[in-house]
Each structure stands twice: as C-alpha cells, then as structure tokens.
C-alpha cells in the first residue's frame, strides 16, 4: 500500500475517531459490560456506590441540556475525544526526545517526513 505522511495518517485517524465517538457510539450495545454483568449475576453489584461525578454535565456519556439522545451521546463523545487527545498530545510533546539540541536544529515531524521520503522507506 502507498506510504502516507504522518500528517495524513493522524488527520485520517482523528476524523475516524471523531466519527466513532460522535456517531457510531450511539449504536453501541447498552447491555452491562462483562464486569457489571458478572457483578449482577454473582451478587456484588449492590456494593457499588454512587459516583462522585454523577450529575456532572457529561455524566454517563450524556450531555446535560441536550434532549436528543443521539446528539447528547455524540457531543459527549466528541468532547471526550478532544479532551483526551489534547491532554495526551500535550503530555507526549513535553516528554518526547528532541532531535538535536542546537538552536534551530529542531526538526518538525513533517520536515522529518520529507527528509525520509527521499530515501528508502525503512524504519530506523
């Protein structure tokens, strides 16, 4: 398959992720997940305490004030994707190893892509 740039890969991935959280998530199964189901069957689901964030604006993946269920879950999902994405991108950006320490020597990911695209497409 054709090799794509990092930017194209990330943009495609972000769009797909937003689509999954914003639209597809409405069609997810509403049955309890494995743990909750087992808790009900084996008999310890009653031990669960109310969540401290119950009643918060996005609690239960529903957006408060949005009455349409589809939109309510979709908006909550998109907000979650954006918050997680920004938080973790910020964290990894702060933690990452940088190319070269000399001033002006730092290379952006896209410049790095162009740099490598001229050569044999193999990993390091």
């Amino acid at each position: 398959m054709r090799r794509v740039s990092t930017r194209a890969l990330v943009v495609t991935g972000v769009l797909l992720t937003l689509l999954l959280a914003g639209v597809v998530s409405f069609y997810a199964s509403s049955h309890p997940d494995g743990l909750n189901y087992v808790a009900e069957k084996v008999g310890f689901s009653g031990a669960a305490k109310p969540h401290a964030s119950d009643g918060s604006p996005l609690s239960g993946y529903a957006t408060r004030g949005v009455t349409d269920h589809r939109l309510s879950r979709g908006v909550a999902g998109v907000i979650g994707v954006v918050v997680v994405g920004l938080l973790f991108t910020g964290l990894t950006w702060a933690l990452r190893r940088r190319r070269g320490d000399e001033p002006g020597g730092s290379t952006s990911p896209d410049a790095a892509d162009r740099e490598r695209d001229g050569s044999t497409p193999v990993g390091r």
């Binding site: 930017r7 991935g13 797909l16 999954l20 959280a21 994405g85 991108t89």
Partner: peptide, 17 residues
C-alpha cells in the same frame, strides 16, 4: 520522539472512542 509523538495523542483518543 518528534516522529512518534503525534501518533500517541491519536492512540489515546482512539482508545477513549
């Protein structure tokens, strides 16, 4: 590193979705 960091944010967001 500069090359792999962009994918990491996407992976976290994808896992959330």
């Amino acid at each position: 590193d500069d090359r792999t960091a962009p994918l990491a944010g996407l992976v976290a967001a994808f896992v959330f979705a």
